[in-house]
């Protein structure tokens, strides 16, 4: 099983722990991952807001690079995943966008046919590697973990390629397979605040707080995410939220970190030390 890998900016910055844990987990499960050579920004930051066309062109280049490697393209950051999907959709549906893309790529002697498939690691790990294989590889079942699975918005809206749009369940199934208890978490696709946390801090934090408070109320011991921005928003401002609304303290980890723990991988190798709110030691060494 071989994939081209598009980390995007987050996995090299605030989301380093996601990259570390993802690569470690893939190694352990025999999924070969090759970082895309000379990749560029996915355009999800300011591009899409200022000039959608420019955003699509950025993605087209990454897609063309991936086609050259002829593997499926693994995009762990939800924002990258969605921008790539959106670009593919627009190129397929609108000839004017397709023509623009072809022109832009010609400058670099690249081409894009539309055949490359963009995949999210949650999809790959649960559906391609499969729960039976993962179960077999578990060395330390996640006993005592009560996980609130938080999916965020971008892997279910507007496209829902690999899970139910209104009620995604892949993470629920994964953690159950790892031996953890999954709390019923109805806010699993509600907004984390997104980039509002950076622009209208209080509004964004309020949205994050609702998610954390609910997880706490339901007795979760940690929240698991599939997206670097969700993880960042939920993890980073808990002190402010506690001051502003009510006390909240909830470790927020990547699903790959929990998977890594269950596979018996080293805490450091999974980047767990990077969490602002640490996962309690007794859980890690349970």
């Amino acid at each position: 099983m071989k994939f081209s890998y598009f980390p995007g900016c987050s996995l090299k910055g605030t989301g380093r722990a996601y990259e570390e844990s993802l690569l470690a987990v893939c190694r352990a499960l025999g999924v070969e991952v090759l970082e895309l050579d000379d990749w560029n920004c996915c355009g999800a930051t300011a591009y899409m807001a200022v000039s959608e066309a420019a955003g699509y062109m950025m993605n087209t280049r990454n897609l063309a690079l991936a086609e050259r490697d002829s593997h499926e393209l693994l995009a762990p950051c939800n924002a990258c995943y969605l921008s790539l999907k959106k670009t593919q959709h627009y190129i397929a549906e609108y000839p004017s966008v397709a023509a623009q893309a072809t022109g832009a790529l010609a400058a670099e002697k690249l081409s894009y046919t539309g055949k490359v498939k963009v995949r999210h690691p949650l999809d790959v790990l649960v559906n391609d590697v499969g729960l039976p294989a993962i179960k077999k590889a578990v060395k330390q079942p996640l006993k005592g973990f009560k996980v609130a699975p938080y999916y965020g918005c971008q892997i279910v809206r507007p496209f829902a390629e690999f899970d139910d749009q209104q009620n995604p369940v892949l993470m629920d199934k994964l953690f159950q397979a790892l031996g953890a208890e999954v709390v019923r978490y109805p806010l699993k696709t509600r907004c984390c605040g997104g980039s509002l946390t950076g622009t209208l801090g209080e509004v964004g934090q309020r949205l994050s707080f609702i998610l954390l408070n609910e997880a706490q109320r339901r007795g979760a011991t940690c929240v698991a995410t599939v997206c670097p921005l969700c993880q960042f928003n939920l993890d980073s401002y808990q002190a402010e939220m506690s001051r502003q609304w009510s006390p909240v303290r909830m470790p927020v980890v990547y699903f790959t970190q929990l998977l890594g723990l269950a596979l018996g991988l080293d805490e450091k190798a999974l980047g767990l030390q990077r969490c602002i709110v640490p996962l309690p030691a007794q859980e890690v060494h349970a």
Partner: peptide, 9 residues
């Protein structure tokens, strides 16, 4: 109603 999600990075 669900709105289009703002892209973030």
């Amino acid at each position: 109603p669900a709105r289009q999600t703002p892209a973030v990075g």
